[in-house]
Amino acid sequence: MTEQKLKELLAKWEGRRGNLIMIFHEIQNTYGYVPRRISLRLSEMLDVPLAQIYEVLTFYHYFKLEKPGKHTIAICMGTACYLKGAAVVLKEFKDILRIDEDKTTEDGKFYLTTVRCVGCCGLAPVVTVDGKVYSKVERTQVAGILSDFLAKEEEKETNE
């Protein structure tokens, strides 16, 4: 985000009370996370202490402080999904990708996270990869989902 864009964004929310969270949302929509250098600039421009910015940023799960992987794998851990075996599916993803929750693979390709509820409990257990919803996922399908995704990506790259 250039200085200019940041100024525009602040102008849009200027004078509106309680704008901090909405500004974070817009920054994250642009970058996929809230970079520290932007937080620093924001602190200067808004005249809000950096501590206060981080106090809010770290409180909410939604805001990310590190650059996420290229593809986000989100495993729903809502009650319905959990009862239908989401924990087993999560473990399989961890084993295959060799990473923990909320971490990115070394090659930066996949970011693994869990979410509270995707809001389609009838399809439990649910996994989303970059927003594409996989429903009624079983442990044995996990490897297939990942290789599908990689294959599609390769195809895209060769086409380009």
């Binding site: 851990m77 809502g78 009650t79 319905a80 959990y82 509270r116 509820c117 809001g119 389609c120 409990c121």
Partner: peptide
């Protein structure tokens, strides 16, 4: 703010 897991 519907955060309750399993509710939509």
């Amino acid at each position: 703010d519907e955060g309750d897991p399993g509710a939509y």
